[in-house]
């Protein structure tokens, strides 16, 4: 565990809290893409199925392979799952009337189908768990596309929404640094699937980061895209 990895995870965790805080404080999920949030629940569900493996080891008192890192990962995985499901739940119950569904027009099959096909072809091992993990990595990389499309459609984002997007995008950028660090310091460490997907994911945020920093530098509350 290095400083880049832990910072990335904390930034990711912060993104959930920012979004939940925004929704609770303003009683609105305006400007937030339900489709992107739904994809994140699918991403975490497919990726963290190994929680059952850890749970299985715990209830059989088989602690031999459970390390501090396992406990940390398990704790964070449960938090990420709970937070993403809670966000989707909020957007479909008490905040449904404020949801930007009419403008959230991205067709999810356009990312779901290619990610599923790629996961079946390019994976480290042809097992159900590994294919679902790979699918989640590919899907996460592009899951922000409905959110970016909604942002372009709207032309601007309020302060908390833009901080949220910065946290979500920034976390993967920090993971890129973490991978470089690990590659340099750990023997035999490589994971091309995560690296390429992580690079694509970060690149998709490129424009957004630019406008976010312009906003921060100019001291504006809202992020505005050029018309």
């Amino acid at each position: 565990m290095n400083i880049f990895r832990i910072s990335a995870d904390l930034l990711h965790l912060a993104s959930f809290f920012i979004l939940i805080f925004k929704m609770k404080a303003t009683k609105s999920c305006k400007g937030i893409s339900f489709k992107t949030q739904l994809m994140y629940t699918l991403v975490f569900t497919c990726r963290y199925l190994d929680l059952f493996h850890v749970l299985g080891m715990m209830i059989t008192f088989n602690f031999a392979h459970i390390t501090g890192l396992t406990l940390y990962n398990t704790f964070m995985k449960i938090l990420f799952l709970a937070a993403s499901y809670y966000i989707v739940y909020l957007m479909r119950t008490e905040l449904k009337s404020t949801s930007d569904d009419a403008r959230d027009t991205f067709v999810l099959w356009h990312i779901l189908a290619p990610c599923a096909v790629l996961a079946l072809i390019f994976n480290a091992q042809f097992t159900i768990l590994e294919i679902l993990w790979t699918f989640s990595i590919y899907l996460e990389a592009v899951a922000v596309m409905p959110q970016l499309m909604l942002l372009i459609e709207t032309g601007e984002a309020d302060s908390l929404s833009s901080h949220y997007m910065f946290a979500v995008g920034g976390y993967r950028a920090l993971y890129l640094v973490n991978w470089v660090y690990r590659y340099a310091t750990e023997p035999y460490y490589s994971n091309w699937i995560a690296w390429i997907a992580g690079f694509v994911q970060t690149a998709l945020f490129g424009d957004f980061f630019y406008y976010y920093f312009v906003k921060i530098m100019s001291g504006d509350a809202a992020l505005k895209l050029p018309t």
């Binding site: 995870d9 396992t70 964070m76 995560a194």
Partner: peptide, 10 residues
Amino acid sequence: AKLAEGHDEL
């Protein structure tokens, strides 16, 4: 050390 999970990152 063998990890409890398949992958050691989130």
